[in-house]
Simulated assay, not measured.
Amino acid sequence: MTKNPPPLQQNPYYEGVPTYMTEVYDWAYVDPNWVRALDRNLVVKTLLFLNDQRLMRRYLAQLQPGQRVWQLAHVYGDLVQRAAEKVGPHGEFVLTDVTPIQIEHGSRKLKDMPWAKVIRSDAADYQPEGRFDVICSFFLLHEVPEQKKREIVEHMLEQLPDDGKLVFVDYHNPARWQPIRYILKLVNHYLEPFANALWQHEISHYAKQPERYHWEKETIFGGVYQCVIVTKKR
């Protein structure tokens, strides 16, 4: 006789995972069977309409060997390896995530890089030892509720040193002529309920005191995506 699966609260892959993750993104980021199927470069390329390399390069271009870098969430494909490799053994690369299965995948990818650490933590709560040169949110903000967006952005700003930078790569409000706009409207309606907020607000909207910082934004692929670099005003 086939045994019934354990309830979510008894499943180690769901322990301590925020409710919005299990209710909205179970299929994408929590259920280990789905995660194993989706964690592939080809999937990333398809979901980003062949813009994956352009977007990853925006992030990787901000990294230098020997830096301390914090990436707020695991990303499917090989991005975390590439980021850690660029930082190199004279630096430190820290990857945090809130879900056990993402920690498992990130740890596997980075196991041969002793300068890379994988830590389970909510992006808004992680308390690092020392300061980071670069802090990156790569396609995280569109996946979290409004209040969590505010908490994450503000926490990142709190960790920003005078000579450091924040990197946000995420969705944006596409131009009306961009046909992908109408595909994403359907995707957001059915699968990404927190993503439309980035169509309506700049990322700086989620900071308590945005005027204290420089917000340098580049839009990509007809406005579908954005890369925002944040530094402190001198």
Rank of each mutant, 00 (worst) to 15 (best):
E218L: 11
A207V: 12
V24M: 03
L110W: 02
L72F: 02
D133V: 07
L55V: 08
V94Q: 06
G66R: 08
G164Q: 10
R234H: 13
T96P: 05
A116D: 12
C136Y: 00
Y182P: 04
K165M: 15
S107D: 03
L63V: 11
S204G: 06
F132D: 01
Y25E: 05
Y171S: 10
Y206V: 10
D122T: 08
Q127H: 12
D39S: 10
L140Y: 01
K165A: 13
R58M: 08
Q9L: 09
L184C: 03
R176M: 12
L63W: 00
V153H: 04
Y14E: 07
N33C: 01
Q127L: 14
Q102V: 01
H90Y: 07
M113P: 03
W34V: 00
L198R: 10
K233P: 04
H105D: 02
R57W: 00
L166M: 10
A197G: 00
P161M: 11
I229G: 06
Q10Y: 15
C227G: 02
E23S: 14
P65S: 08
M113Q: 15
Y29H: 05
V118M: 06
L42S: 15
S121G: 09
L184F: 10
K149Q: 03
A123N: 08
V80G: 00
L186T: 12
D39W: 01
D133G: 09
Q53D: 09
V87C: 06
N51T: 03
W70I: 10
F221M: 04
V24W: 05
L63P: 03
E192W: 05
V75T: 13
G222C: 06
M156T: 02
V69E: 03
V134S: 07
R176G: 02
Y190H: 14
N33H: 12
H205L: 05
C227V: 14
A61T: 07
P210I: 08
P18R: 12
Y206I: 09
P114H: 11
F139K: 01
D125C: 09
L160T: 06
P210Q: 11
E23F: 05
F221N: 12
Q10I: 00
D97F: 05
Q209T: 15
Q209L: 06
F139V: 02
V43P: 02
V24S: 08
D162A: 15
E151C: 01
R108L: 14
L38Y: 11
I101M: 13
Y213A: 05
F139T: 01
V134F: 01
K232Y: 01
V94M: 06
L42A: 14
K117D: 09
V44T: 14
L8N: 13
I183R: 01
K233C: 04
G222D: 04
L184Y: 05
L166E: 09
P161K: 06
R131T: 13
Q71Y: 02
L95E: 15
A123G: 14
Q81D: 13
Y20I: 10
Y29S: 10
F139I: 03
L160Y: 03
L38T: 08
K86S: 05
V144T: 04
P210H: 09
Y13S: 11
D163F: 07
I229T: 13
L166D: 07
T2I: 11
Y182I: 08
K208Y: 07
V44C: 01
W115E: 06
S107T: 15
R176C: 04
E129Y: 02
E129W: 00
Q147Y: 03
K3I: 07
H189S: 11
Q159T: 00
Q71N: 14
L95W: 01
R181N: 12
Y190M: 09
Q67G: 07
W115S: 09
